[in-house]
Simulated scan of single mutants.
Amino acid sequence: MNRRRSLTALAATAACVGLLAGCGDGSTDAKDKPAAAGAAADGAQAFPVSLKNAWGTAEVKKKPLKVATVSDGDTAIALALGITPVITPDIEDGDPVAQYKQRALDKLGAGKLKTYDDTDGTAYEAIAAEAPDVILGVNTWEMDKDYAKLSPIAPVVTYTDKAQADTLTWQERLKTAAKALGLDAKAAEVIAANEKATADAAAAHPEFKGKTYTYTVVHPEQISFMSYEAQDPGVFEKLGFAKTDKAKNYGPDKNAVSLENLDQLDADVLLVTYPFGDRGVISPTELEGNKLFQSLNAVKTKHFAVVPSENSLAQAIAYPDALSAPWVIEQLTPVLAKAVAGQ
């Protein structure tokens, strides 16, 4: 499964602001010069590079010029590092390209990415036909079955433990990929820029500090309490918000909220998203028209907001990466500001 295919694991997570702080200048021709000009800044990095992973070792003998990706998250990593992949999975399936990805493509002068149909999984032959120097797979859940077929094509850069498919931060994934690409300094630059931008956004909104919040996702099977106690501090907390005392009642395997217990959602600020629209367990109209929901203090005082999903914001919050992070804050901060102000 591509990390962006499913929204069932939606969760609050780290994000940053700025206009594509993670993207460098790049090539306009993915096949002839797929590595961006920004990549040259790290040209002195030593090769060969040997990277162990859960299935073997990736031996990258020289600085890669042709990079293939096997997930949308890996494509985001390449673009954030200033590299246009020679081939990527077709995550959009005909839908409009996410705004933050289009920004990166425009900045790199890349036009439209060459893609393969990943409906039935990774298209090994399509990847092999591009003769990549390296394959990025640090952001996929499918490496357990893909590695044996990908590794004969090119060195596969992926995680060192199978459990890391879920646990690595976007910063860790970025740094792993950067090491294989000779772009350690560029990765550090991207991370530092995002951290500064996040801090700047928090400083610009002191009214956020200390406000409790609940982030709720309406899934097809349940209403999910996503800002549970064990959830790593994410975009909301980096901006100054704090979890409610009810967060201790929920966890990654126990986060369903019944209609009888909607009072569990109350907080200084209540945020709900409907990534499945009317295919959720309850429609937006039904939930927001529910008498118990309307009785919540956050709702009565207008400290309630819907986080948009049609523009990929909810998805980008769930699956953060160096490319989407700036755009998330850009889109989310105004929503939060209005909710705090009760507008």
Results as ranks from 00 to 15, higher is better:
20 L>P: 00
100 Y>R: 02
240 G>D: 01
194 N>I: 01
71 S>T: 10
157 V>Q: 07
341 A>K: 14
106 D>R: 12
317 I>A: 04
170 W>H: 09
216 T>R: 03
331 Q>Y: 06
322 A>H: 07
296 L>E: 11
154 A>Q: 12
132 P>D: 06
253 D>A: 07
209 K>M: 04
251 G>N: 12
281 V>Y: 04
16 C>I: 01
146 D>W: 13
140 T>V: 15
306 V>S: 04
93 D>G: 10
65 L>E: 11
59 E>N: 15
268 D>M: 05
314 A>H: 00
49 V>A: 09
238 K>P: 00
237 E>P: 12
19 L>F: 04
107 K>C: 09
146 D>K: 07
115 T>F: 01
292 L>C: 00
290 N>L: 02
174 L>I: 02
195 E>F: 08
175 K>Y: 03
99 Q>E: 15
317 I>H: 03
321 D>A: 05
113 L>K: 06
134 V>Y: 13
25 D>V: 06
43 G>M: 04
197 A>Y: 05
206 P>H: 04
169 T>M: 03
135 I>A: 11
270 L>A: 14
55 W>I: 11
166 D>P: 01
215 Y>P: 00
141 W>I: 05
312 S>P: 00
179 K>G: 00
90 D>G: 08
105 L>C: 12
144 D>S: 14
288 E>F: 13
164 Q>F: 14
59 E>M: 10
271 L>A: 13
113 L>V: 08
204 A>G: 08
327 W>S: 03
328 V>G: 05
193 A>F: 12
266 D>W: 09
229 E>Q: 14
184 D>R: 09
172 E>P: 05
35 A>I: 11
154 A>S: 11
168 L>W: 13
216 T>G: 08
118 D>W: 13
45 Q>L: 06
233 P>H: 15
251 G>H: 09
186 K>D: 06
82 G>L: 02
198 T>M: 12
177 A>K: 10
10 L>D: 15
127 I>W: 03
141 W>D: 13
340 V>Y: 14
221 E>T: 12
2 N>L: 03
328 V>K: 08
194 N>M: 02
61 K>V: 08
164 Q>H: 12
18 G>W: 14
269 V>E: 13
261 N>Q: 09
98 A>N: 10
248 K>P: 07
196 K>V: 03
340 V>P: 03
73 G>M: 05
147 Y>S: 07
